[in-house]
Amino acid sequence: MSGNTSSPDDYWKANLRLVRLCLIIWALASFGLGILLRPLLSGIAIGGTDLGFWFAQQGSILVFLVLIFFYAVRMNAIDRKFGVDEQ
């Protein structure tokens, strides 16, 4: 540990919090807006169809991309904060 008092447990908890947040968004974009909640989006028209169709065919993939890079950036910052990054 490079000069701070936080324990490996805190590091792991911070990781789990971040993963939980990301996976909620992951499920919401695909299973939520793309499949189960599509009827709720039926009023929002886009290019001859509704927003749910867009989420199923394109939106979810874009959300996944943003999520992975967001996770990598945040996680590398957490690694440094807890002094467990690779030198």
Binding site: S30, A56, Q57, S60, L67
Partner: peptide
Amino acid sequence: STYLMGWTGGYV
């Protein structure tokens, strides 16, 4: 669309 979401969502 299952193929599109399924085969990319696994990377998350």
